[in-house]
């Protein structure tokens, strides 16, 4: 699947971040982040470890509170709304965790059933089972339905983690390093899955990654985070045509011969 298959629906802004700041003690992690995401748009966020990429999506989902700045999701300020409104907003946001965060005491079926039955109490058993089977088919893992998370591979866990969020039919997907620690073939499968989700579920997404291939394939835009701010936001070619050393090093590590960056 190619990302050209996926079209950005409208110019409606689903996530709007202005001058976002967040620090942990003396450490300023986010220091004036600005970002806008349109409906149907995938934005890949790149940056070194510890630059606050995961903090950014945790703030968007309401898991962390910002120190200052504006974070609006579907026009609602996530840190200002009531707990009830936040719960309702979260039904529109899917969060794929770096380590999948599957409930390890539950089987795959129960992992998928849990958010569904708790949030859509009017569904009968048949409808629940159909939804579980449908979403497992979408991520290509129908055979794992009765397995425990400990019996799954890393790539399978990530896909089940994505399935668990898709079952609630979110409008926004937040992926935290979806391809980290996976082999190249599984990475390709996951990149394709991200594109499939964008196309079939019509989601807008933020993809946190270190993997430039993942960013290039899945992102309509790429944003480079450095020292708490976005250094550059734009199309992949546009961003990586920059002469900035930080951006160039990212590119060179992934796409040019390593002789250029290693002293050997």
């Amino acid at each position: 699947m190619d990302k050209k298959d996926t079209q950005i629906d409208t110019q409606e802004t689903v996530i709007s971040i202005k001058d976002l700041k967040k620090s942990f003690g003396p450490l300023n992690v986010l220091n004036g982040v600005n970002l806008e995401i349109k409906k149907g748009e995938n934005v890949a966020v790149l940056g070194r470890s510890g630059t606050g990429k995961s903090v950014l999506i945790k703030i968007i989902s309401g898991l962390l509170k910002p120190d200052s700045g504006l974070v609006k999701v579907f026009g609602q300020e996530v840190d200002k709304i009531s707990e009830k409104e936040l719960q309702e907003l979260r039904l529109k946001i899917g969060f794929s965790f770096q380590n999948s965060a599957l409930y390890d005491s539950m089987s795959v079926r129960e992992n998928l059933k849990f958010p569904l039955v708790r949030n859509k109490r009017d569904l009968n058993d048949k409808e629940v089972n159909e939804a579980i089977e449908s979403v497992l088919n979408d991520v290509g893992l129908p055979q794992t339905i009765n397995q425990m998370p400990s019996e799954l591979s890393g790539g399978q866990k990530k896909r089940i983690g994505i399935a668990r969020t898709l079952i609630l039919k979110p409008e926004i997907m937040l992926y935290d390093e979806p391809t980290s620690g996976l082999d190249p073939i599984t990475c390709i499968e996951l990149n394709n899955l991200i594109l499939k989700v964008q196309k079939e579920y019509r989601t807008s997404s933020i993809i946190i990654t270190h993997d430039l291939t993942c960013a290039k394939i899945t992102g309509n835009k790429v944003a480079i985070l450095n020292e708490g701010k976005f250094l550059k936001i734009g199309g992949f070619e546009e961003v990586f045509s920059s002469h900035d050393t930080y951006i160039k090093t990212f590119y060179d590590y992934n796409f040019t011969e390593n002789n250029k960056i290693y002293e050997r």
């Binding site: 945790k58 989902s61 309401g62 898991l63 719960q87 309702e88 979260r90 039904l91 946001i93 969060f95 965790f97 770096q98 380590n99 965060a101 599957l102 409930y103 390890d104 849990f114 958010p115 708790r118 949030n119 983690g161 668990r164 969020t165 609630l168």
Partner: peptide, 14 residues
Amino acid sequence: VTEQIDAMEVSATN
């Protein structure tokens, strides 16, 4: 520590 509690929170479960 495995973020399962966070996962529960973001899936609109208290």
